[in-house]
């Protein structure tokens, strides 16, 4: 009897300890998050005004604004999306709608996308440098950077579009087939509109990943902080700008301000993505 009471007491102590540990960890995670965001906002918000967003970079970023950086960032993003949206959509359609008819191809594509999703960003940088900049002769340019990013974004985009399309009830496919509709018109008129939330969520996840990326752009789109005049110009992305500012003395105030801009952009995209996922796709799009 006394033995079992002591065991019971020990269990109670363990229960309490674990509870403390769980709450402690959760608290720490939240505290660190608040500290990170708070620190960024505290030091960064002061540096943001209209001039900061609309003026050119001066004294390697210590002074002036980030307008050319923003332009370069959006151009890189535009190139990335212009390439990854069509390829990604088509691949996702194959995986969700035609994998039964193309089993070998689908398995291969699935496996290679899994690997691609895990490739470290610096390796994408090496690859982009060797392939786009040198082998294809694009040099350090917005085009090289955007194309490198599209390789990175594709697996994320494809997987969430695929899940979005799979979430479309198969009733619609049967109904369409019974009406003698071709695959093409089924896709264009029913499946893609019905799968739009998944596509939107995938798009936002992809944009988020592309905006956050730094290492893959170091040796592909380059460091030039002037206004790009074409896609063949080198252009510095916002995230790379933040890194660069930490390497120059006196760059921190503007690094903070640029950080706030970047995090604000990402926050909006993230909230949009999780909103679409939760409210429209009903949580069927997996976020990893």
């Amino acid at each position: 009897m006394s033995r079992s009471t002591s065991r019971g007491a020990r269990a109670k102590v363990a229960d309490g300890l674990v509870q403390a540990l769980v709450w402690g960890t959760a608290g720490t995670v939240s505290a660190v998050f608040l500290c990170l965001v708070g620190d960024l906002l505290w030091h960064g918000l002061a540096g943001i005004d209209l001039d900061f967003l609309t003026q050119g970079v001066e004294r390697t970023g210590r002074a002036g604004g980030i307008f050319p950086i923003l332009v370069s960032t959006f151009l890189i993003l535009a190139v990335c999306l212009a390439v990854s949206i069509p390829i990604g959509l088509l691949t996702a359609i194959l995986l969700s709608e035609f994998s039964r008819r193309n089993p070998t191809l689908s398995r291969l594509v699935g496996a290679s996308l899994d690997v691609l999703a895990g490739v470290p960003s610096i390796v994408f940088g090496l690859f982009g440098n060797a392939f786009f900049c040198i082998a294809l002769g694009m040099g350090f340019s917005i085009l090289s950077g955007g194309l490198t990013l599209s390789c990175m974004v594709l697996p994320i985009f494809i997987r969430s579009v695929e899940l979005g399309l799979r979430a479309v009830p198969s009733d619609y496919r049967l109904a369409g087939a019974a009406l003698g509709m071709s695959h093409t018109s089924m896709l264009l008129k029913i499946l893609l509109p019905a799968g739009a939330p998944g596509i939107a969520a995938g798009l936002m996840l992809g944009v988020g990943r592309a905006l956050a990326e730094t290492a893959a752009l170091m040796f592909t789109s380059g460091y030039a902080d002037r206004m790009p005049s074409s896609l063949m110009d080198s252009g510095r992305a916002l995230s790379l700008h933040i890194y660069d500012l930490t390497q120059v003395t006196g760059g921190r105030p503007n690094a903070y301000a640029s950080g706030v801009v970047l995090v604000a952009l990402l926050l909006v995209i993230n909230l949009l993505a999780s909103w679409t996922v939760e409210h429209i796709v009903g949580g069927r799009v997996q976020r990893v």
Binding site: L90, L94, L105, L113, L116
Partner: peptide
Amino acid sequence: LRGASVLASSIVLLIVYF
């Protein structure tokens, strides 16, 4: 669809090759 899929999956091969 097949073309795009082959393109998408060839990226990994290109990376390894380079």
